[in-house]
Nucleic acid binder design. Structure first.
Length: 588
RNA sequence: GGGGUCGUAGUUCAACUGGUUAGAGCGCCGCCCUGUCACGGCGGAAGUUGCGAGUUCGAGUCUCGUCGGCCCCGCCA
């Protein structure tokens, strides 16, 4: 197919190009055939331009133009003219001019697309994903991916300026225990053996520190075979960072520098540094989450001290068992109807709450179903403790420590959404620090690492390792933006003895540790520098900076909730011969 | 693994308690229309109601199963 190549893009012509003869290549965005004169918009990544076909000027050209349909790929040559007075389109950059066509080539026809290539279309995500190449033509997705591109560039430039070395690590690696479920890749040459796709380049980047690279970063694809969410895909992108001879403050400084630059260049927003810091304990107890959204207040308050002696069994039993009774204030919700309260009770029950106690506080007094069991004085002390005001609704949950706070944390967000307390234009960043190092897993009857097994305990908690392991705090930190975890990392263990001790606490025997992580332990024998690092959830950052609700909208070819790719229909079955080569038999 | 919600024309939706030939907007096709930009006017085609069973005289509607989309819990070092 011969066609004239473009001299300009569809987004750049304006009154400065008047009377020039130009050629545009692109897609037919829309057509308006008035019987005589035909207008079309021709569209490419850069914009769209109105093209005019006038039958009086060129009959055969006009006849050809009348066969144009949506999404045909064309080449149009013509002269740029100022639009007649009053005919300008102020909505688009090229709206003051139009192209009077003199030549037209239909480069490629197109079937009618299953949905129009327009913004703000109301189309099921299923259809959009099946025809992803059409969805990606829409301006929103184009702009999202362009922002993503700019963030790659900002990242590379920033780390390069700060003496970091970009190093690629293997995609085919050793499967290691702990952490997420691995994606496995069978080995053809080694029957019965498997590679794993990296959940993150964790061990490699630590070894790069042993190798002396001092400052490493990588924009790395990571893979985790776990269930999906709006902000979780089985394959996703991390900005992976590791540094030698550093402590937490060094990491924070580098990270904050990058985030500040991203916000300035993408949003034009100057963030204040240093970012807020909240301990894990405070985050849980005040906000019911280790990734609190600080765009609104609604803090959780503990009521145990006020309720120790009360008759009300729901409270007293929980307190006796060492649990917590805590509550939060739903502002201006005292007018909630019975069914609205039933509704939020249902909400917390779905999260596993036994129930929800409410207190309405108005100028008429205190109204609560527990007034039968709890004295007026205690109810008043609760209202005081909660700092409730007339018109507020107090919601109280009683359960064990983590469950009660988790439920209140979810309720906090629910109330904020219902009461419209979240300012979408606000960005609240904070560090969450002092995570526990270990947590006990009843299913596995052993401790498991909260972050990962290479995370250093806090030095001042070292002696607790033998006595109260669950009390040991980790040198781990998460960066949180508007209730999303956007980065997480730690200062690592670089001492072989401490690493071995960690493995033994995790119930990993010496021989198992040697088998699974021997290469790392061996590397540590040869002079490992103190080091630490962090990894950013790149997709989530792009999502938040583009104002999208799902990372699917910032990933070119994402998977559905059931980890399928609807466009290319993967995963799919493979030939028997392929399986044979890989020494794999499928159980049916 | 669990909870919720949805699945009807290309698409977005409608169809009262089960009841005539499953409708509408947009899109598509045809005709008319020379300054539109959500062009307009007239006409038309378009359906395995996701799939499979069952209940019933009769199922888009009820029941069971199954497949798929989305949200959440678990899970995600």
């Amino acid at each position: 197919m011969k066609y004239k190549k473009r001299t300009h893009t569809c987004g750049e012509l304006n009154i400065n190009h008047i009377d020039q003869i130009v050629t545009l290549n692109g897609w037919v965005d829309s057509r308006r055939d008035l019987g005589g004169i035909i207008f079309i918009y021709i569209r490419d990544r850069y914009g769209k331009t109105q093209v005019v076909f006038n039958p009086q000027e060129n009959k055969s050209l006009h006849d050809l133009a009348s066969t144009l349909r949506s999404e045909f790929v064309i080449s149009v040559t013509g002269i740029v003219k100022r639009r007649p007075a009053g005919q300008e389109n102020r909505e688009i950059a090229t709206g003051e001019i139009e192209l009077i066509a003199s030549e037209l080539t239909i480069i490629n026809k197109a079937d009618t697309p299953p949905f129009p290539i327009e913004d703000e279309i109301d189309i099921s995500e299923e259809t959009r994903l099946r025809y992803r190449y059409l969805d990606l033509r829409r301006a929103t997705l184009q702009s999202n991916l362009l922002t993503r591109h700019r963030l790659y560039q900002i990242t590379r430039k920033y780390f390069d300026e700060n003496n970091f070395v970009e190093i690629e690590t293997p995609i085919l690696m050793k499967s290691t225990p702990e952490g997420a479920r691995d994606y496995l890749v069978p080995s053809r040459v080694h029957p019965g053996k498997f590679y794993a796709l990296p959940q993150s380049p964790q061990t490699y980047k630590q070894i790069l520190m042993v190798a002396g690279f001092d400052r490493y970063f990588q924009i790395a694809k990571c893979f985790r075979d776990e269930d999906l969410r709006a902000d979780r895909q089985p394959e996703f992108t991390q900005i992976d960072v590791e540094m030698s001879f550093v402590d937490e403050q060094d990491i924070f400084k580098i990270v904050e520098g990058l985030i500040v630059r991203m916000f300035m260049e993408i949003k034009g927003i100057q963030l204040q540094t240093p970012f807020k810091i909240l301990t894990y304990k405070d985050a849980i107890e005040k906000y019911g989450s280790d990734k609190p959204d600080l765009r609104f207040d609604l803090s959780i308050k503990k009521l145990n001290e006020l309720l120790t002696g009360v008759e009300f069994k729901v409270f007293s039993d929980v307190i006796k068992k060492g649990g917590v009774v805590s509550g939060l204030v739903a502002p201006n919700c005292a007018n909630y109807s019975r069914s609205q309260i039933d509704n939020i009770t249902e909400f917390v029950k779905k999260l596993g709450a036994a129930g929800l106690v409410w207190i309405k506080y108005t100028d008429k007094g205190i109204d609560s179903p527990i007034s039968k069991f709890v004295s007026r004085e205690i109810l008043e002390s609760i209202v005081n403790r909660m700092d409730a005001r007339f018109g507020d609704l107090i919601l109280i949950v009683a359960d064990d420590y983590l469950k009660a706070h988790n439920i209140l944390g979810a309720l906090r967000i629910e109330i904020a959404n219902r009461q419209n307390l979240i300012d979408a234009n606000r960005y609240e960043l904070l560090w969450v620090v002092d995570f526990p190092l270990l947590e006990y897993s009843p299913e596995e009857s052993r401790y498991i690492a909260v972050h990962h097994p290479f995370t250093s305990p806090k030095l001042e908690d070292l002696e607790l390792l033998d006595t109260k392991p669950e009390k040991v705090r980790a040198r781990a930190y998460d960066l949180v933006l508007n209730g999303n975890e956007i980065a997480g990392g730690s200062i690592r263990i670089f001492n072989r003895e401490l690493q071995n001790k960690m493995f033994s606490l995790l119930g990993i025997s010496e021989s198992e540790a040697q088998k699974k992580f021997g290469f790392l332990l061996d590397a540590f024998k040869y002079g490992a520098p103190p080091h630490g690092g962090i990894a950013f959830g790149f997709d989530r950052i792009v999502m938040l900076l583009t104002g999208q609700k799902s990372i699917r909208d910032v990933i070119a070819f994402p998977k559905t909730t059931s980890a399928m790719s609807l466009m290319d229909d993967s995963p799919s079955e493979v030939d028997e011969a392929q399986l044979r080569e890989l020494h794999i038999k499928i159980e049916k």
